[in-house]
Design a protein around this nucleic acid. Sequence first.
DNA 1: GTAAACCCCGGAGTCGCTACAGGGTCAAGC
DNA 2: GCTTGACCCTGTAGCGACTCCGGGGTTTAC
Lengths: 144, 144
Amino acid sequence: MKIGELAAATGCHLETVRYYEKIGLLPKPPRTGSGYRAYRPSDVARVRFIARGRSLGFSLDEIRSLLRLSESPDLACGDVDALARQHLTEVRLKLTQLQRMEAELMATVERCRGGQRATCAVLQSLGEPDLPTSPAISIHAPMG
Amino acid sequence: MKIGELAAATGCHLETVRYYEKIGLLPKPPRTGSGYRAYRPSDVARVRFIARGRSLGFSLDEIRSLLRLSESPDLACGDVDALARQHLTEVRLKLTQLQRMEAELMATVERCRGGQRATCAVLQSLGEPDLPTSPAISIHAPMG
DNA sequence: GTAAACCCCGGAGTCGCTACAGGGTCAAGC
DNA sequence: GCTTGACCCTGTAGCGACTCCGGGGTTTAC
Ligand SMILES: [Zn+2]
Ligand SMILES: [Zn+2]
Ligand SMILES: [Zn+2]
Ligand SMILES: [Zn+2]
């Protein structure tokens, strides 16, 4: 199976597949005579594992660890679970930050019901001299 | 006031201040004879405006627009509010994605109470062939 | 035979910083 | 006068996780 089919079967772009190969998340597949990558069905499973991990917010480095752990079938799953729980706390931290952000933003927007610019609550809130600035988290990062 | 004092007064790194200047968010300040940047108090307000905007999750581009809008004092605040409301919906979208992520992750982690790797619910969930992969959002981005 | 659809590679761009490397400047202490 | 250290300058490279582009080669269908 060629890279396009693999991409279609897993729902990700073929550039992404090449990227995963480049950073060592996918093994280098054999090539056809003309240099095309030739994948096997198990590669579909591996890419799907990665995609599903990403959709749970795992970083590619965490997924790399999970893949390694999944390849040694004798081990107990303690390490896997620890990694997942650790990641869950990261997610929850982000969640509370985002909730705070949403609350502040909503309060600000609600306060301003379209008057003059000079009394705009949004601008007032941004211009307030001594409000504490909580940690900035990225909302506009590209999301697949 | 020198860049270090500006940074201290606003709570951000001086590299960040230089970065804001580079991308045109801060005007180029005059220089001392030896080439040091010499800021005025109004620059503190501007950097704080940016920092507060970032802490509400606005992108630097959105903040650029907000700054421009804040500089034409005659306008009504309709555009400002529209931008803020638009951003609020972005935040809420991210929030629901993160909540979904948290719920799935928690359910998975709870299902697995540390047995054998072969029955690890986390690995099973990742290896499940036909689970839909929802959009991946970045959890591990650097956060100030 | 030729056009479309696929594949290859390498490099650059995204966002919002952060961290150097390799220098210049300034104030204080001896 | 000399050194030490804290500050400042520029320019560049790096982070994560892709995405897109240019400039080519290959395969497939009509
Ligand atoms: Zn994580
Ligand atoms: Zn307003
Ligand atoms: Zn926004
Ligand atoms: Zn487990």
